[in-house]
């Protein structure tokens, strides 16, 4: 595969289960070496999309290429270079963690040594000889991650990878992913823990009822949404308040007065200059719209559109 060829290319892909349209008219391409997130409610079509990318379900319409090949053609070549972590991953409980990962390693033509190394890497070295039936949910999730990373994959498909992980393990998880992305691996993960994607996902694709409602870099989406920027200011003692915009909200007024105000993105600098004027404020926080707000905004936009006659 050429270095500039997209890792994933979807063109008007649709999937219908009986009367239910799980995915409709989804098109996007992901270049190699990016970390992208699929965001959406349960039932928005994230898992169905991933199943189609794995060739486990056939699209009813549209075309898709994963690592340069059509996954529903049934070939196994693309799957050699692909790592996958399904949602709520489960394993055969009777086997030990080491047996399981070695089995998967052999399937991918990876050495058992590399497999053991990955177990260490996700912190399961000590539990490797125990049966998976005795593992906690977080441990199973880590084993799932370890098997996905086998064989230096060029594409990682991770469905809700951080559910059940402790905050500490979560940090490790993100740093491992960053390492793979730096080496040119494409990562597509789905999540509904939006706040943790901030600063990590270069690209966010928001799905709703099987449709893409927004797709872009986090900053781009913010610009598109034109959500107000909020500024939180701690006023200097005894400073006048008549310069405050009329929509400013007093958060607390005990030891020092804290107010929060919102403004359109293009008015941000004006407002900042007013705040920064001599003697008005002792501290300020700039709060860009969070992904949660963005998500709510785009979903809101959808229902407005649909409400129109």
């Amino acid at each position: 595969m050429r270095a500039d060829a997209p890792a994933i290319a979807l063109e008007q892909v649709a999937k219908r289960y009986g009367k239910v349209e799980a995915v409709r008219d989804v098109s996007f391409t992901l270049p190699q070496g990016v970390l992208a997130a699929l965001v959406g409610h349960n039932g928005a079509g994230k898992t169905t999309l991933m199943k189609m990318m794995l060739g486990l379900a056939r699209p009813t319409a549209g075309r898709m290429l994963v690592l340069g090949r059509d996954p529903s053609a049934g070939g196994i070549e693309a799957r050699r270079q692909l790592g996958c972590l399904p949602e709520n991953v489960t394993f055969n409980a009777a086997l030990t963690g080491r047996e399981m990962i070695r089995f998967f390693a052999r399937l991918k033509g990876e050495s058992t040594k590399a497999a053991d190394g990955l177990l260490e890497r996700v912190g399961l070295g000590a539990a490797a000889g125990r049966r998976i039936g005795t593992y906690s949910k977080g441990m199973r999730q880590r084993l799932g991650l370890a098997q996905a990373l086998l064989g230096s994959p060029r594409l990682l498909l991770l469905d809700e990878p951080t559910t059940g992980l402790d905050p500490e393990v979560r940090q490790g998880f993100w740093s491992i992913l960053a390492e793979f992305v730096a080496r040119g691996t494409t990562v597509l993960l789905s999540s509904h823990a939006l706040e943790e994607l901030e600063g990590k996902a270069e690209r966010v694709i928001i799905l709703d009822r099987g449709r893409v409602v927004a797709d872009g870099a986090m900053d781009e989406l913010r610009r598109l949404a034109r959500l107000p920027v909020r500024i939180r200011v701690r006023l200097a003692a005894g400073a006048s308040r008549d310069w405050l915009p009329s929509d400013a909200v007093v958060l607390q007024d005990r030891d020092a007065c804290e107010v929060e105000m919102a403004c359109a993105p293009e008015e941000k600098m004006d407002l900042l200059r007013r705040v920064a004027a001599e003697g008005r404020a002792t501290d300020l926080d700039l709060l860009p719209p969070t992904l949660d707000e963005l998500y709510a905004h785009f979903l809101q936009g959808r229902s407005d559109l649909e409400a129109r006659p």
Binding site: L54, G55, L56, G74, I76, R79, R80, C84, F104, L107
Partner: peptide
């Protein structure tokens, strides 16, 4: 039903 098949089939194995 247990969900292990999904993972197995994501590996380079034919059906």
């Amino acid at each position: 039903e247990r969900g292990t098949m999904l993972l197995l089939l994501s590996y380079p194995l034919t059906r």
